[in-house]
């Protein structure tokens, strides 16, 4: 009884907070709409939010009417320009991130675990790390031409360093007491590394992965503006050439939503993997 009451109360509190959170955006949208509708702002420069929404829906909708002879219903539903662009961008982020993190993680574990290997590799890493991935664009095009290869190269480069640096520091800063306790229990070699050092370093590693995918998401937009002819980054740049400001903003909103979805997903994974960690309940 009290539990039900409590849940109800809790639900009301969440509802109230959500309502409060929407006040500022809604007011802003109303002001924006009024300013453009009244002709105070040139819609070519800044289209009304309603116009952006209409454009976003049009961008989302399939281009052709549904014909069962051509494709399945689901395929048709996602045959619009926006789902295609979003999917292309997601594949690039996931693929590039996979390559970058997949290389950085073992290298970071090795550098963190072996002082000698660290001394060998660290100067090079410190030299390359400050170069922003964007600065690799000319080389990427020179090496890989246009298309997906340079995009994957740039994205994986963007994900590589955050994962590498965090993995190294995660392994190197494992609390000595865990290692002592493990050695006292008879652990050594691979057991010590896999069952004690690696889990103890997980919070750092996950932070690196989260930053890494964030950078990958930034780089994918840039890479698409330069090297390929689909994806969200390409689409908003293309829209500029036609002065379609509504489509630019619709594309930006999609990018924002996608970024939010990726970050939320990473947060969920973090929470699950770190359910043992202090300060991880709420």
């Amino acid at each position: 009884m009290t539990d039900k009451n409590g849940r109800l109360k809790n639900g009301m509190a969440i509802f109230k907070r959500t309502l409060q959170g929407t006040i500022v955006p809604v007011v802003l949208l109303i002001v924006w709409e009024a300013l453009t509708q009244s002709g105070f702002i040139n819609p070519q420069i800044l289209p009304a939010p309603s116009q952006v929404l209409l454009k976003w829906i049009a961008y989302l909708k399939p281009l052709e009417p549904y014909d069962p002879a051509n494709m399945s219903y689901l395929a048709w539903l996602f045959s619009g320009e926006l789902p295609h662009d979003a999917l292309a961008s997601i594949i690039r982020v996931v693929g590039g991130f996979g390559i970058g993190a997949g290389l950085a993680l073992p290298l970071g574990l090795l550098m963190g675990g072996s002082a000698r290997f660290y001394q060998l590799m660290n100067p090079l890493v410190q030299l390359l790390r400050p170069i922003p991935p964007i600065a690799y664009i000319p080389l990427a095009i020179l090496w890989f031409g246009l298309g997906n290869p340079p995009a994957f190269f740039l994205i994986s480069l963007g994900a590589f360093f955050p994962v590498l640096m965090n993995t190294i520091s995660g392994v190197r800063t494992v609390d000595e007491i865990y290692i002592r306790a493990a050695r006292n229990l008879g652990a050594s070699g691979a057991t010590l590394f896999l069952r004690v050092i690696l889990p103890a370093a997980t919070p750092h590693i996950l932070t690196g992965l989260r930053v890494g995918i964030g950078v990958a998401f930034i780089v994918v937009i840039v890479a698409e503006m330069i090297a390929v002819n689909n994806g969200l980054g390409f689409r908003i740049l293309e829209a500029r050439e036609f002065m379609w400001s509504d489509k630019i903003i619709a594309g930006m909103i999609t990018i924002g939503l996608l970024g939010l979805a990726i970050d939320t997903g990473m947060d969920r994974i973090n929470r699950y993997l770190l359910r043992w960690h202090r300060g991880m309940d709420q």
């Binding site: 865990y178 043992w276 202090r278």
Partner: peptide, 19 residues
């Protein structure tokens, strides 16, 4: 070397928090 024939109980926080 350290070994399980001399089991040790440490000051607080030496349990493995992920286990």
């Amino acid at each position: 070397v350290p070994g399980p024939d001399r089991a040790m109980v440490f000051q607080e926080y030496a349990l493995f928090p992920w286990m």
